[in-house]
Nucleic acid binder design. Sequence first.
DNA 1: CTGAAAGCGCTTACAG
DNA 2: CTGAAAGCGCTTACAG
Lengths: 328, 328
Amino acid sequence: MVGIREVAEVAGVSMSTVSQVVSGNRPVSAATRARVEAAITHLGYRAHPGASQLRGGRTGTIALIVPTLENPFYPLVAAGMQDVLVPRDILLTVTDASGMDRSTNAIHRLLSRRVDAMVAAPFGIPAAGLAELHDAGIPFVTLGEEPPGGGDYVHSDDVRGARAVTEHLIARGRRRIAFLGGEESVIPTQQRLEGYRAALQAAGLPLRDDDVVFTEYTRQGGRDGAALLLERDERPDAIVAANDLIAIGVLDVTRARGLRVPEDVALTGYDDIDAASLVSPPLTTIENPAREIGRACARLLLERLDGDVTEVTRAVALSNRLVVRDST
Amino acid sequence: MVGIREVAEVAGVSMSTVSQVVSGNRPVSAATRARVEAAITHLGYRAHPGASQLRGGRTGTIALIVPTLENPFYPLVAAGMQDVLVPRDILLTVTDASGMDRSTNAIHRLLSRRVDAMVAAPFGIPAAGLAELHDAGIPFVTLGEEPPGGGDYVHSDDVRGARAVTEHLIARGRRRIAFLGGEESVIPTQQRLEGYRAALQAAGLPLRDDDVVFTEYTRQGGRDGAALLLERDERPDAIVAANDLIAIGVLDVTRARGLRVPEDVALTGYDDIDAASLVSPPLTTIENPAREIGRACARLLLERLDGDVTEVTRAVALSNRLVVRDST
DNA sequence: CTGAAAGCGCTTACAG
DNA sequence: CTGAAAGCGCTTACAG
């Protein structure tokens, strides 16, 4: 392998000078620089990341931990992060935490690898994992909710989105609107529920406890929840699902029962994943800007890494918008 | 930071011994091992990856380059790779090459980072990129087709899959079956066409040139191809689409023309992406095991890295299976 | 089974 | 603006 030494020899300068040219950490005369650069090109020199890391401290790697890679929302977050990271020549490593017994393992593993920073969806990350992250003292951003103890986070305005979608149903004449959430404990569920409630309240519609059902953020979760909601005597005339996958599960049930959407029951999703426009009928939903969210995460991290941030917590709220399709 | 030196002090042994305990590269007495392990736990020691890398040579990182993260097939490949890589404590870095002018940049960048191995979808990777990869001498695997010049690759058995889906249509009584392929030049297209032909031939059905149309592997490609096939006087009574996205494009056209699927024309896809079961009618298709493909890629790489492989080229063909739904 | 020492390829004070 | 030298935290021959 060709190293800094070979380059220095060919260029007729010291190893320090080669290092300065590569890193730009101190001024080098134009003539010297040109000679060094010529030698680098000629020899095909590539810095050894391990060596730089050992001295410089940083690995140039940022990690993303997601609950699952099967929900297409998360790969898009990864793509957004890359939009920002690639120009800075930072590597992104993505971990699907669903396979590991506990995401704590993922955090631990990534910390051992000395990643420079991390973004994680906090859902299901046990407190111990978050604590370890805190102790490590590296910049990190959470997705969707503020980490306990404070820290940067990025979310789209869930209260507003859920409110918009519910108001849309009310405007369409629906009166008995149910809410089908994912896991009750996570903040996005709570905020979407809050938006739903706010819309009903503003319209003077009653809030009924049994119109709110919690399940999982999956297609199967949607099936389970829909089974509950739709077997009642007094069926809702609309369902606000907390994400598209849940809504798609609801469609499975309406189809099986011969219910027409939207005639018998109107339905809305959340996120606007590709599938939302492919199902039949295509879903009215809230566009959740996954890629933008990824970009924002990466930017927050980079600012911390660049050291010009003093605030403990910064929140980035991205706006979302209603996409009306045939399911309402 | 606590390093090997601190651990050695606390355990009352030399730094070498600590290193041996951590790496397992040479036998250590049980008593010593226990003392060292206690010290490691007590101090919370984590090896510095940069230092190990500088000596040991490997970064413990494997890269995956995909044409896009927006096609849900690829994130699943990534998830499959992780299934295999995580237990070996190897990091996966995923690059979406769509953003970069040329994937060559991605390859170059990853090589600079000294990733230990790489898997890439060869579609659209220019020869220069592949050549650089070859020169780097690191193990790599391609997706779907053999890399020019030879090397490991993983694909599902496309001939067999396409044959199965075509035989299924014949069994359903279809006689005039068209093939709607993606780009003619890529191997998967050629193999799926071969399977389709084999099925017709075995059934004694004629092969007509004008029943074979090539387009792009996209929804729009499907629309374009369907427009050609369905405007003829003698319409086919079935269409074998070379992937699900194409089939979904066909559905757009049948819907617009008031043709019923499967009554007027039966339709099959390929891949079984989520959307295949979401469209109406849901598609009969061939399940292309993305996650399994990812696992196989990782295993091939690991075997090379472990050094017990001498063959230049190894091909892994994964079996796929017919999924029958309402479109046939 | 264990230790002392060299060295992996860089970066960064320290000098000039 | 440039160079010589120390050292980052490990691993691995080399000895014993």
